[in-house]
């Protein structure tokens, strides 16, 4: 009995170790080699998750252009979060990025303890002086544009959206989508469903199928699974966060895209110049600064009625010129 319990704990220990070792990216080889700017990002999810993936991809791109040292670590659990951020702060990285959702206090605690290091985190809350800046994905403007297209294209006057959880950054996209649709078609009704999970495409798909059965003919895919449902039933859809054209070229018209590259570039350059400010970088993820945009149409602009495309292009120009402001509404949307 004793022997077997030692064996069992040994096995579990080894397995945990194997998983744990994999979870952490390798540490930097020689820290004091040269004085290159050093950036690290700390993600709570695997980088396959689109939100953290957008930050990671932007950093990889900026690294090529600007030539800084970039490390990243992913799947950091809530309990480990503060320790991992602290470890990188101890290693004197110049800029620490990542997502602080659910770990807002821990992130700020570490920032306060290392005032010389700059922190820039995805966050639902505010910045903290002198060194903790925040950002979020403010892609409600292209969501509004998609709503305009949907409002014009719908034959049933019923649209559908499936979201993960009703958190502010999801709510404002859905509400903007609806506002855009209502602007061009006051008869539009919107079906909204939340599946209570970020990662359950089969369930998301079922929610979208239920909306299609309830009459929805254009769907906004806040989560993976919606596009697949639209494709199966011959309906059209809008992607989200990334350019999701490749998932179903004949189904996906366009969609809001989040591009972190302008913000990452600006942040790295300002850290390099010593001008980094602990502020809310919301506008850097909006359309004017190139942080948000509509995904390319891949020929859909030829297939759709000309006046719809012209209308959207005009509104896009107005947003870019500061002549039109898409309302920000973070209240929880409900099905009509």
């Amino acid at each position: 009995m004793k022997r077997s319990s030692i064996v069992s704990w040994g096995i579990v220990g080894a397995l945990l170790l194997a998983v744990g070792v994999w979870g952490l990216a390798p540490a930097p080889a020689d820290a004091q080699a040269k004085k290159k700017l050093r950036v690290v990002s700390i993600f709570q999810t695997p980088i396959e998750e689109p939100w953290d993936g957008a930050i990671h991809q932007a950093l990889l791109k900026a690294q090529k252009e600007l030539g800084f040292e970039y490390e990243w670590t992913e799947k950091v659990s809530g309990a480990d979060f503060e320790r991992v951020v602290r470890e990188y702060a101890e290693k004197k990285y110049d800029l620490i990025m990542g997502d602080a959702f659910g770990q807002e206090q821990a992130a700020r605690r570490v920032a306060k303890a290392y005032p010389k290091i700059k922190f820039l985190f995805g966050s639902g809350l505010g910045p903290a002086r002198p060194n903790f800046g925040v950002f979020d994905n403010w892609i409600h403007e292209p969501a509004y544009l998609c709503g305009m297209i949907a409002g014009k294209l719908t034959k049933t006057n019923v649209l559908g959206v499936v979201g993960g959880h009703p958190v502010p950054e999801v709510n404002r996209l859905i509400n903007a989508f609806k506002a855009g649709a209502l602007e061009v078609n006051p008869k539009v009704k919107l079906k909204v469903a939340f599946i209570g999970s970020w990662f359950d495409p089969p369930k998301t798909k079922e929610a979208a199928l239920a909306q299609i059965e309830a009459g929805a003919d254009l769907l906004y895919a806040e989560r993976y699974g919606v596009i697949d449902a639209a494709k199966d039933r011959g309906k059209l859809a809008f992607g989200n966060l990334l350019d999701q054209h490749d998932l179903a070229p004949d189904t996906v018209i366009t969609g809001p895209v989040w591009d972190m590259h302008p913000l990452v570039k600006f942040a790295v350059e300002s850290v390099r110049r010593g001008t980094f400010v602990a502020m809310d970088y919301a506008e850097w993820t909006m359309m004017q600064k190139g942080g948000a945009k509509l995904a390319p149409f891949y020929g859909w602009d030829k297939k759709l009625p000309k006046e719809i495309i012209e209308m959207v292009k005009k509104r896009e120009q107005e947003i870019l010129a500061g002549l039109f402001r898409v309302p920000v509404d973070e209240s929880t949307p409900k099905s009509d």
């Binding site: 599946i195 239920a210 929805a216 409900k334």
Partner: peptide
């Protein structure tokens, strides 16, 4: 399946 449908019909 029911709860997704109840959400869909509002």
């Amino acid at each position: 399946a029911l709860q997704l449908r109840l959400q869909a019909v509002g």
